[in-house]
Design a protein around this nucleic acid. Structure first.
Length: 480
DNA sequence: TTTTGAGTTGTTCGA
DNA sequence: GTCGAACAACTCAAA
């Protein structure tokens, strides 16, 4: 009699190396079925945004190839987890199922219910952890509660160690044939017409191999100078690993390991560069820690006094922000980079987010929603925690009087206007110094650069100084 | 329980 | 041009 199969259910862990759920399945020696389930119906879960669907398509395509090369095949199914998983388990006579823990209130509830039901039916359920360095509940204050300040969180987490060696990929898998699967193309995860993903295709290589190539390149070339260079959207000193971590093409352990491994290298990155980068990985950990302890992080102010904040409803301003037509070149460049490539440089993310919340006084949830739909790295924990941080309602948040000046930020971090020029081509003929404040540029200069304010580039939709005063006043009121 | 020190990322103003 | 202070106290975490 042929041995009964093990089912490996992939979710946000689309990789084969440092993949404990898969490695453990391979070790059993039993035949392996691998599965990805597109669940857009389970209650309480969020449907993927457009950009993330695009990423998922590429990541799955690569993952399926990888499965094939190892001797298995990736089965694709669609529907509600609580229905489909038990069905496929009984259809394939699976005796054992492996998955990697995922986070979020609804997701964890589904997984708990599933595990209970499957175990009751005599199926072994094995859950592995590899999407975070530390489980959210494992890091506690001395008093036994959650952290709400980043630095002590990181110290406590790091004290537990984070330099374990990543697992190698299994050499081969004993696959099972004949299990019916959806066709990836039928899921229509990628746009056809209009094909808004053309620029994204150029900007990104999806899938595990591409992720490793990016990681290698980052630690070998760009990590050196990261501590300061990470703030420069006109330079290449950021990792661009966020979508890879989002879909689990890489594990955070692999990322840290790669960064630590170049730390002592001659003429390599400084300790400061490496530490700074690792701390960014820890911000991701901290976001999951917060989401775990405050499951409504995506919808509810962490600081409840913000519940009475006088947010404005202004659909016109929101649309201008979304389209990158605020009249502030750095803000517009960021929003257009987002729309075109599915990603924004971190420094510019803060500037555009601050602009929405503080200059326009629009609720951070509107921004969160837009980012959710347009970012390839859209991730509930990071997105929610970061928006709340900018708004001031979150953990260890920016103080209310910290209002980014979009002109000063451009002067400091895109001094030649290289970044703005790339994403706001109608201003390309203006020089650094002019390009980030066209309204203050002499008309003759503008017209010789082909810029007609209000025609081919908007006038500012708000005046910085007035908007700043309005925001300070509004935030001040929230305190009383 | 109370005390103490500290906390991602800025801007503006006036000396 | 540079530099320090004000912005606002407040809450968190540990001793």
């Amino acid at each position: 009699m042929d041995a009964a199969p093990v089912l490996v259910w992939f979710r946000n862990d689309l990789r084969v190396s440092d993949q404990p759920a898969l490695s453990a399945a391979a070790k059993t020696g039993q035949p392996i079925i691998t599965l990805y389930l597109l669940d857009e119906v389970s209650r309480g879960t969020r449907v993927l945004g457009g950009a993330a669907r695009w990423w998922l398509a590429g990541s799955l395509r690569e993952h399926a190839k990888k499965m094939k090369s190892l001797g298995a095949s990736l089965v694709l199914r669609r529907g509600e987890a609580l229905k489909i998983i038990p069905a496929i388990v009984s259809e394939t006579k699976t005796v054992r199922i492996h998955w990697t823990r995922r986070y979020g209130k609804a997701e964890e509830a589904i997984d708990r219910a599933l595990a209970e039901r499957l175990r009751a039916e005599g199926v072994e359920v094995h859950v592995y952890s590899s999407s975070l360095l530390h489980e959210p509940e494992d890091v506690e204050t001395k008093a036994g509660g959650p952290f709400r300040i980043f630095t002590p969180y990181m110290r406590a987490a790091q004290a537990k160690g984070d330099s374990k060696f990543p697992l190698p990929a299994p050499k081969e898998l004993r696959g099972v044939t004949g299990i019916s699967s959806d066709k990836l193309e039928d899921w229509k995860l990628e746009p056809e017409k209009p094909d808004w993903a053309k620029d994204m295709l150029v900007a990104w290589t999806r899938g595990e191999d591409g992720a490793h190539a990016r990681l290698r390149n980052f630690v070998d070339e760009e990590l050196k100078g990261y501590a300061a260079g990470r703030n420069r959207p006109d330079q290449d000193h950021v990792s661009r690993l966020s979508p890879r971590l989002r879909f689990g093409e890489l594990s955070p352990r692999q990322v840290c390991h790669a960064a630590y491994s170049v730390a002592g290298r001659k003429s390599g990155p400084s300790t400061r560069d490496v530490d700074k980068f690792i701390s960014e990985i820890y911000w991701r950990e901290f976001s999951y820690h917060l989401l775990h302890h405050y499951p409504d992080l995506g919808t509810k102010n962490l600081q409840s006094r913000f519940d009475r904040f006088p947010w404005r409803k202004d659909l016109g301003a929101l649309k201008s922000w979304q389209r990158g037509e605020t009249g502030y070149p750095l803000v517009d460049a960021g929003m257009r980079q987002l729309w075109r490539t599915g990603w924004i440089h971190n420094r510019v993310r803060m500037v555009v987010a601050s602009f929405l919340v503080k200059h326009l006084l629009i609720d951070w949830r509107e921004g969160e929603r837009w980012f959710w739909d347009t970012l390839v790295d859209a991730d509930l924990a990071n997105n929610a925690a970061s928006w709340q941080w900018v708004a001031g309602s979150g953990a260890d948040a920016a103080p209310y009087f910290r209002i980014f000046n979009p002109v000063t930020q451009a002067e400091n971090f895109d001094p030649e206007g290289k970044y703005v020029r790339e994403f706001v081509p109608e201003l390309a003929n203006l020089r650094g110094g002019e390009i980030y404040k066209p309204w203050a540029t002499p008309p003759a200069t503008l017209s010789s650069a082909g810029v007609i304010l209000g025609k081919n580039y908007p006038k500012p939709i708000v005046d910085h100084t007035k908007a700043r005063e309005r925001a300070l006043k509004a935030f001040k009121e929230t305190k009383d």
